[in-house]
């Protein structure tokens, strides 16, 4: 078990280095003079020169990367060229907000999505099944941006139940979490349903039923655990997506999270912050995947503490 975890951890390292190179390179290779863009149209040539020096833009790209990486390993991601504050400070100020939003959205998705999926599977082709699957289709298809604005119009302008944006009390959290969580809810509902249906068709379920077990025990004890494997994968990947994908939701609801910071920084061509934010989200994504892999191993021992056991 530990060997498996350590192996997964080690495998994450090249992925992370790859990510850092990619993040670093993409943003530098955008045509145009970063120094000029950062300094602004009104800036004097002296100031542009100074920005160029600060960013080592006159050095080779490998020198820039080497300096970037060594600093990174010491926890120094540089300073925002826009606000002048350390990138780490900027990110840490925003990260908890994104975490709160993504967790709330995930919670909604798990509770609503799984319940709907299970009920749909056990009552296949019922009115509830059809209605919830139609709703799920809508949830997956509706653009987040549009959905957010519709929620604002309905719940803030017309009903006046929740504030339309900002952060503060739990009431500020409701609309963005719903907006962000809807697509995931829909996805989880669909996966849970099909996975449950799949498992319910298996022989061992027929055996369990023929033993005379009550349907509740068959469904929740025997079927659910096995049906969970694909659901957990989706949850893990979705949580990563939620963290990164909160960009639109955060923008619509003026939620001060990492996603919005990233958008603002891209618009301001604030290279260090964009690099930091993307790197942070990438690291989280890798970590979440790692956790998912470990949870698998608990759910289904066949998956593996080691390859030989699979074979």
């Amino acid at each position: 078990m530990y060997g498996y975890i350590i192996r997964r951890l080690l495998l994450a390292i090249p992925v992370l280095i790859g990510v850092s190179i990619l993040v670093f390179a993409i943003i530098r290779f955008i045509p145009g003079d970063p120094a000029r863009a950062i300094a602004g149209v009104h800036a004097s040539p002296q100031y542009i020169e100074q920005v160029r020096r600060d960013l080592l833009l006159d050095e080779g790209i490998h020198v820039q990367y080497y300096v970037y990486l060594t600093n990174l390993l010491q926890g120094d991601m540089g300073r925002s060229t826009f606000t002048g504050r350390p990138v780490t400070t900027e990110l840490m100020a925003r990260f908890p907000n994104t975490m709160v939003l993504a967790s709330a959205a995930m919670m909604i998705a798990i509770i609503v999505g799984m319940s709907a999926g299970i009920v749909s599977a056990t009552k296949r082709y019922s009115l509830f099944d059809n209605a919830s699957m139609l709703f799920a289709l809508f949830g997956v298809a509706a653009p987040v941006f549009w959905l957010g604005i519709m929620f604002q119009l309905l719940f803030s302008v017309h009903l006046g139940w929740f504030p339309s944006g900002g952060i503060g009390t739990w009431r500020h959290l409701v609309l963005p979490a719903l907006t962000l969580g809807l697509a995931t809810t829909a996805l989880i509902a669909r996966i849970t349903r099909s996975s449950m249906l799949d498992v319910l068709r298996q022989d061992y379920i027929t055996t369990a039923r023929s033993k005379g077990l009550v349907e509740r025990v068959v469904v929740y004890k025997h079927a659910l655990k096995n049906a969970m494997i694909p659901v957990v994968t989706v949850m893990g990947l979705q949580f990563g997506t939620l963290l990164g994908g909160a960009v639109l939701t955060e923008t619509v609801f003026s939620w001060p999270g990492v996603g919005r910071l990233m958008v603002d920084s891209i618009l301001a061509r604030d290279y260090p912050v964009v690099q930091g934010a993307v790197l942070l989200l990438a690291v989280l994504f890798v970590m979440i995947n790692l956790v998912v892999d470990v949870i698998y191993a608990f759910l289904d021992p066949r998956i593996s503490y080691g390859n030989k056991e699979v074979e």
Binding site: I30, P31, G32, D33, P34, R36, A37, V41, R269
Partner: peptide, 8 residues
């Protein structure tokens, strides 16, 4: 052009 490139 994108703004930064444009100025250059």
């Amino acid at each position: 052009y994108d703004w930064g490139t444009y100025l250059d």
